[in-house]
Amino acid sequence: MSSASTTALVRRPFEGIPAERDLVAMRQLIPAATMTAATTAEHGSVPVTIATILPMAWPAIRRSDGSVIIGLQATVPGGDLSRAFGQAIVQALAVEPGTPVPTLELTADSPRLQDVLDLTGDFPITVHETFDFWVDPGAERTEEVEHSLEHANESISPTKPVAGLEHAYWVDAGPKEHVRWVLDADEDRVYDAVARLHARRESAIAEDTRYVGSFRAEGMTVPVWDLPSGFGAEGAEAVAAEFRERFLAALESTEPLTALERRARGGIVARQVTLR
């Protein structure tokens, strides 16, 4: 499935992959996470680890056991992330085990992830507290490696998935905590849903929390809520089921907005800022 151009922007690059929303979260929200996958039989049925980021922000590494690990937060060429990381896997398979792929040789014939990965897998995601997954199991953990890991681990903001709110992630960003929820929904529909809830004073996840805005990422909409310090992932999980039901009901509503809801929506859009 090649395209005529490597520069054409693909706004929803991971569409068709079962784990699309978690891949977006790994690209945009989560500091340290891995996902298990494998290539198709055509590409050798090789185990693939999809990671958030790799040492030196490399796009990929061929590990000593022959498996491949790619880093979704790498800066890659072209307008299609899926094609860039499909190419990263192909290049990794072509090098000797234990070798990184520092640059990509992207062409119009480069395959996309949807072409390279076996899409029948479960794509389980694991959020990590450290970058220990960087270490090749077959490589020696030297003092230099340990020092590099220690330095990288210091940069990680504590992040956890919110049980009961699928594809949502809690993060402790220092002065504030947030819940960021990756939704497969048009941004206008999300605004409408928040407006419906805000008009009823129900747009917060829980008491002392508040909706602060949303942003677009790889074709998904990501609304963000501020939480008070100390709220924790556990606090979000305690109200997740009730909030999810309330929010999705508002999101799925097709009723025209009332006058009060339209005023609420206008205020939400007027205050909207670019969030990350």
Rank of each mutant, 00 (worst) to 15 (best):
P55D: 11
Q87G: 01
S214C: 06
A41P: 00
H151R: 15
G138S: 09
A168P: 05
L227C: 13
T209C: 15
R210E: 10
P137D: 03
I53F: 00
I205R: 04
I156T: 12
E202W: 00
P97Q: 08
R112S: 10
A32Q: 07
A204S: 10
A51E: 12
V212I: 15
I17A: 12
P223K: 07
I30L: 14
V162W: 11
A206P: 03
L165R: 13
V179W: 13
L81W: 06
A173V: 07
G230Y: 03
A195H: 05
G164C: 05
E150Q: 14
V135P: 06
T107M: 02
A233L: 07
T142E: 01
R189D: 11
R62Q: 08
V24W: 13
P59A: 02
L119S: 04
A204G: 10
P111Q: 09
V145P: 02
L117H: 02
T99P: 08
T120M: 00
A57G: 11
P97G: 05
R210H: 07
I205V: 14
W134E: 08
E143R: 11
I30D: 13
A270C: 03
V24H: 11
Y169P: 04
G98D: 09
F231C: 03
R21H: 07
A51Y: 01
V24T: 15
T103R: 13
W58R: 12
G219R: 06
S155T: 15
M56R: 13
T159E: 10
Q272G: 14
E187Q: 13
F215L: 10
T99Y: 05
L119P: 04
V48D: 04
A264V: 02
P47K: 08
S203R: 03
F243A: 07
A163T: 15
G98Y: 06
L275K: 02
K176I: 14
T6I: 15
E129W: 08
N153Q: 04
M1T: 15
R246F: 13
H151S: 14
E237T: 15
A270W: 09
D172P: 08
D118P: 00
M220W: 01
H128M: 09
F85P: 01
L149M: 09
I30T: 07
H198F: 06
F243T: 11
R244Q: 14
